[in-house]
Amino acid sequence: MSTNEPPAYPGDSTPPPVGGSQPPASGSYPPAGGYPPPGGYPPAPGGYGQAGPPKTNQKATASMVVGIASLVLGLFCGFLVIGSVVAIVLGFIARGEIIRSNGTQKGMGQALTGIITGFVLVALFLLAVVLLATGVVDYDFNVEG
Score class of each variant (00 low, 15 high):
Gly47Lys: 12
Ser63Pro: 03
Pro45Lys: 06
Ile68Trp: 03
Gly46Asn: 03
Gly39Trp: 12
Pro36Glu: 03
Lys55Val: 15
Pro42His: 05
Pro54Ala: 07
Val66Thr: 11
Gly47Asp: 04
Lys55Gln: 15
Gly40Gln: 03
Ala51Asn: 08
Lys59Ile: 01
Gly52Trp: 05
Gln58Pro: 07
Gly34Thr: 04
Gly39Lys: 14
Pro31Met: 00
Pro38Trp: 04
Tyr35Asp: 01
Pro31Gly: 01
Pro37His: 13
Thr61Cys: 10
Gly47Pro: 11
Thr56Leu: 09
Gly39Gln: 13
Pro42Cys: 02
Thr56Arg: 11
Ala44Ser: 10
Gly34Glu: 06
Met64Asn: 09
Ala60Phe: 04
Ala32Phe: 00
Tyr35Met: 06
Val65Ser: 12
Gln58Ile: 09
Ala60Tyr: 10
Gly33Glu: 00
Tyr35Arg: 07
Ala62Met: 12
Pro53Ile: 13
Ala60Lys: 07
Gln58Gly: 13
Pro37Leu: 14
Tyr48Thr: 10
Gln58Asp: 14
Pro37Ala: 15
Gly46Trp: 01
Gly40Ala: 01
Ala44Asn: 07
Pro42Ser: 04
Pro42Ile: 01
Pro54His: 08
Ala62Val: 02
Ala60Thr: 07
Gly52Asp: 03
Pro45Gly: 07
Ile68Val: 15
Ala44Arg: 05
Thr56Cys: 10
Pro31Lys: 00
Pro53Met: 14
Pro45Ser: 08
Ser63Ile: 01
Ala60Cys: 05
Pro37Arg: 13
Tyr41Val: 08
Ala44Ile: 02
Val66Ser: 04
Val65Phe: 05
Ala44Val: 05
Pro45Asn: 08
Ala44Tyr: 01
Gln50Ser: 14
Gln50Ile: 13
Met64Thr: 05
Gly46Ala: 01
Lys59Ser: 11
Ala51Lys: 12
Ala60Ser: 05
Pro36Asp: 02
Ala62Phe: 07
Pro53Gly: 14
Ser63Leu: 02
Pro36Ile: 00
Lys59Phe: 13
Gln50Arg: 15
Lys59Ala: 10
Tyr48Gly: 08
Gly67His: 06
Gly39Phe: 11
Lys59Leu: 15
Thr56Met: 13
Asn57Lys: 02
Gly39Pro: 12
Pro54Val: 11
Lys55Thr: 15
Asn57His: 11
Thr56Ile: 15
Thr56Gln: 13
